[in-house]
Design a binder for these strands. Structure first.
Lengths: 140, 140
DNA sequence: CAGAACACTTCGAGACTCGAAGCAAAGGTA
DNA sequence: TACCTTTGCTTCGAGTCTCGAAGTGTTCTG
């Protein structure tokens, strides 16, 4: 029965994230962040070009009004800046402030320290990412 | 660098769940369910003894007031019943109604059909559950 | 038999989510 | 050029979710 295997896999996947988020609570509270704002902050990699709102909605699987709200929280806390994209003046791009980079580093590190995935050794981690990489591949 | 591997694994894990939840939206809407109520419904396996509120808060990683609220939603929709545990009259146990079992079957099936994990074959699924099983093991 | 511990509920405030409607910029057509 | 459509984003309002503090009733402990 594959359905049972699939159920178990999905439940386990879900649980890993829920446990990570759960243990992250206190650290997020220190920075006046919530799960929603943490996810948004995480989705802005300072090593990559600043994403537009449009790109962020795709990364976070949320809709535009929702992202505008969450972005507002990050703006209020001085963690991100919103600026017009000169190439397309309809579009706004989000970039981290200095404080934003600092806070992001801290909470992401905390996430990695607290996630139960940290129990896996390097080869197991690669095995896992290989499997999930296949899963998340664009339309195959 | 293990941190990069860990980051990738956590991100992938998170993304699998978010995509699943995202694609599930329309099906949940049909039954007037939300992500929160779906998770609660999912956490009540009709094949197992009815869980208490206490057990449910642990399964869902939420607190008591939150669960009381979500349980209220399921009660309103006639999907679960709440009864006093005769063994400990402080405790309330949750069991599915006939309608609850029907709806749970349907939305769980929809989740399995929509999750990107369904791309994996049986042996890959087992490999994944083995890894995540190790991850979720109680205090090792 | 107190008094502490426990399971749960209520209340109120804050945070999140989304559809509908609106705005300005960009693209298409003639 | 003028006009219409599409796109990216914001605003608004209603509904949902989340949680700390406080309260009720039950069980446990000394």
């Amino acid at each position: 029965m594959t359905a049972a295997d699939l159920t178990a896999a999905l439940a386990a996947t879900h649980d890993v994230w829920m446990r990570t988020a759960d243990r992250l609570g206190p650290v997020l509270a220190e920075h006046r962040l919530t799960t929603a704002t943490f996810q948004a902050l995480w989705a802005i990699d300072p090593a990559e070009p600043p994403p537009s709102m449009k790109v962020m909605t795709e990364r976070l699987h949320c809709n535009a009004p929702n992202l505008t709200f969450v972005t507002g929280q990050l703006l209020d806390r001085g963690l991100v800046e919103r600026s017009v994209d000169p190439a397309d003046r309809r579009s706004r791009v989000l970039s981290l402030t200095a404080k934003g980079r600092r806070v992001r580093d801290e909470v992401v590190r905390a996430a990695l320290e607290n996630t139960p995935l940290a129990r896996l050794d390097e080869s197991e981690l690669r095995q896992l990412t290989a499997l999930l990489g296949r899963v998340l591949q664009p339309e195959g």
